[in-house]
Amino acid sequence: MKITFRHRQSAHCESGVTANLLSHYGEELSEAMAFGIGAGIFFAYLPFIKLNDLPLTTFRNITGGILKRTMKAMGCRLEAQTFRNPSQGMAALDEKLAQGTPVGLQTGAWWLPYFPEAYRFHFNMHNLVVYGKDGDRYIISDPVFSEPVLCLGSDLSKARFAKGALAPKGKMYYLVGTPKPERLPSAVKNGIKTACRAMLKTPLPIAGTRGMRFLANRLEKWPAKLGEDKAMLYLGQLIRMQEEIGTGGAGFRFIYAAFLQEAATVLSENRLAKLSGDLTDIGDHWREFAVRAARNCKGRAGTDDSYPAMAAIIRQCADREEALFKELSRIV
């Protein structure tokens, strides 16, 4: 049994699932558009949250936010369910599939056997769409893979009921209602407004462009405070967060630039196309930071790769992003 569903590979799982589900219901939407309408772009440095003993940095908004916001903005609703009992959860999935409904799942990446070893860790916010079943194997559109994948029911069940932080509890979701194409322009505008607010006006000094400067100040002091070895581990974690699979490059800056380019067409607003180009340059600057940080991690730092020099790049990114989002908020 297989529902006709078009799988498209995307950079990020959540925006990919959002775009693919909406497209299935007739609203042809790119991943970048789903990401932008969902106001996915963000920044926060959260030194008090530790992952493998290293501080967390995020370049996107809170997980789940893109799905919810984009669906709502396009005029449909996401019906979501969680389960206490795995067999009930799997039965509910089968029932929905039998009705011809593609079903989105929140899963723990650790248990998905088709994940390459390097990406298997206890991360519980991985999204995918199930759109068929062949014997005891489910047919899955996992947005970060180029082709649809197959997964045994027993493995999928483990992934759905993974434990730990943000445990999915078998969460499944599907679209109710049909997307309304006439809402697209206002959805785009509101998405930009929300992103501008988050980047410029979050009342916390650790978030948005202020958060970038906060990171720059802290980063400068890492070698003195932590010692060279630990400082390198902090840098490594930061680069992984910025460039790890799922950001599309430069901590989602490129994917948001792609959104701005499309938004320029939707809203017939040339200034957005220009800002898209600006954001591409900012993204390239973030990548330059990654190159220098990686040289440090490899113990090959040159004179241009000192911690103050790297902090300076982040401050420049902060200044330029602040200017960019201010101009964006004037346009919409």
Binding site: Q9, A11, A32, A118, F145, G246, G249, A257, E262
Partner: peptide, 18 residues
């Protein structure tokens, strides 16, 4: 590290389109 898995990147082509 990706061991053959290709991931999606966003990039600008010669016409300036993403």
């Amino acid at each position: 590290i990706a061991e053959g898995l290709k991931e999606v990147c966003y990039a600008v082509n010669q016409e300036g389109r993403y």
